[in-house]
Amino acid sequence: MLVKPKAKNARSKRFLVNREPKVVENAKTAIIVRGSSTSQVILDTLKDLYALRKPNAVNFTKKNEIHPFDDETGVEFFSRKNDCSLFAVGMHSKKRPHNLILGRTFNHQLLDMVELGVEKCVTMKATGAQSCAIGARPLMVFHGETFAQNETMIMLKNILLDFFRGEEADRVSLKGLEYAITVTAGPPGANGEPGLVFLRTYTVELKKSGVRQPRVELAPMGPALDLRIRRVRFPNDDMWKQAIRVPREIKETKVKNISRDGLGDKYGRVHVGKQDISKLQTRKVKALRQRLDNKPSKRQKTE
C-alpha cells in the first residue's frame, strides 16, 4: 500500500485535496492495463476501449504482471496511484484465450469484476467509420430478459453502465448524442449459464425528415465484440452498502404532499377546509331569480 504523501507547497496541496472524498465526486477514471502475455485481439480491444473512455482513462502500453482473480494487490496499487475506480485488464493464455477483465474499485479496494472471453472483435479501424468526439456520452441499450433476471448479467450491466457513462450531466443536447452502444444477451446455455453477449457500437446520424424532429440512422462504428462470461467476483455486502450510500447533502428533501411517478412527473395534493355551499357565489340566471314581492311572472299570467 502507498503511504499518504504530505503537501510541500500550495500546488501539491490542491492536488491532494482534489483526490479526497467529495459530496459530488469527479468523473470516474479507468485504467487500461496490458497483461504480461496478450494477443492482437486483446490489444485491439483495449485500444478501442481506451478511445471510447478518453479523456477519463489512463492507458498502460507496457506489459504488467497482473492477475486480478489470483492477486488483487496489483489492481489496488494502480488504482491508488492513478486515482482510478474502473479498470480493464487484457491478457491471453492457452487456458483462457483472449481474456478481458472489467471491474471496479471502491476506496482503492477491489469491489467487483467480471472475466470475459473475446470471441470476436471488429475494431474501429476495420469499420472505416468516423469515430465519436472525445468525451461524448453514449446511449446505452440492453436487449434481453436475462439482464433483469440473472445475477451475473445484472452485475455485468451495472459494470458496463459505470464504465461508459462518462461525466454526469443534467441536460444533453440532441447533437451531443454522437454514438450508441447496444448490448444483446444471447440464448443461455444448457445448464442455464449466460450465453454470448454481443456488444455493438454505432454512430448516430441525424438526417432531414421534413419535420422538426430529425430522422435518426445508425451506422456501425466499432468496436463490435462477442463476449462470453467466464469468471465473476461479486462485491462484499458491507463494501457494497458503503459504495451505494448517498450523502445527506445531495439527498432530495421530501416535501409534504408532493410525489413523482415513474416518468418523473410531479404531482401535488392540496387540502382545503370544509366549505359552506350556501354562501357559494354562483352564476346569476334571470329565470332562477327569486321575486321579492311573490308576484306572478308574465308567463304565469298568460297561462
Rank of each mutant, 00 (worst) to 15 (best):
L225H: 05
R248Q: 13
K208C: 01
R200S: 12
N257P: 00
R230T: 04
N236I: 06
K251R: 14
L199Y: 11
L206M: 15
E249C: 01
T203W: 04
M239E: 13
K208Y: 07
K256D: 15
N257V: 01
L225M: 08
V204I: 15
P214G: 00
P235H: 03
R215S: 09
R228Y: 10
D261M: 00
K208W: 04
K256N: 04
P235V: 02
N257S: 12
K208V: 02
K208L: 03
D237W: 10
D237Q: 13
E205A: 08
K254V: 14
P247V: 07
V232L: 07
L225N: 06
N236T: 00
Q242E: 13
P223T: 01
I229M: 13
K251F: 04
I244L: 06
E205G: 00
K251G: 04
R212Q: 11
G222P: 01
I229L: 11
N257Q: 11
R269E: 13
Q213G: 02
V246C: 12
R231I: 03
R248A: 12
G273C: 08
R260L: 10
K241R: 11
R269G: 00
P247D: 07
I250N: 04
G268F: 01
Q242D: 14
Y202W: 15
D237H: 09
V255P: 00
S209C: 03
K254S: 09
L218N: 05
R215N: 05
K241Y: 07
R215C: 11
I244S: 10
I244Y: 08
G268L: 07
K256W: 05
F234G: 01
R233Y: 09
L225V: 02
E249Q: 13
V232I: 11
A224H: 15
A224K: 08
G262P: 00
A219C: 06
R233S: 10
F198Q: 14
Y202G: 00
G210D: 07
G262C: 02
T203G: 12
L199F: 15
P247L: 02
R269T: 14
D261H: 09
K207L: 10
L227A: 01
P247H: 01
L199G: 03
T201S: 10
R200V: 03
R212K: 12
R260V: 09
N257H: 06
D265G: 01
L206Y: 11
D265W: 13
S209V: 03
E252P: 00
S209A: 10
L225P: 03
K254R: 09
R228I: 10
A243D: 05
V255L: 06
V211Y: 12
L225Y: 06
D237I: 13
R231N: 10
V204G: 08
V204D: 05
N236Q: 09
M239F: 05
G222N: 01
P235L: 08
R228N: 10
D237F: 13
P223G: 03
V255E: 10
A243C: 14
N257L: 11
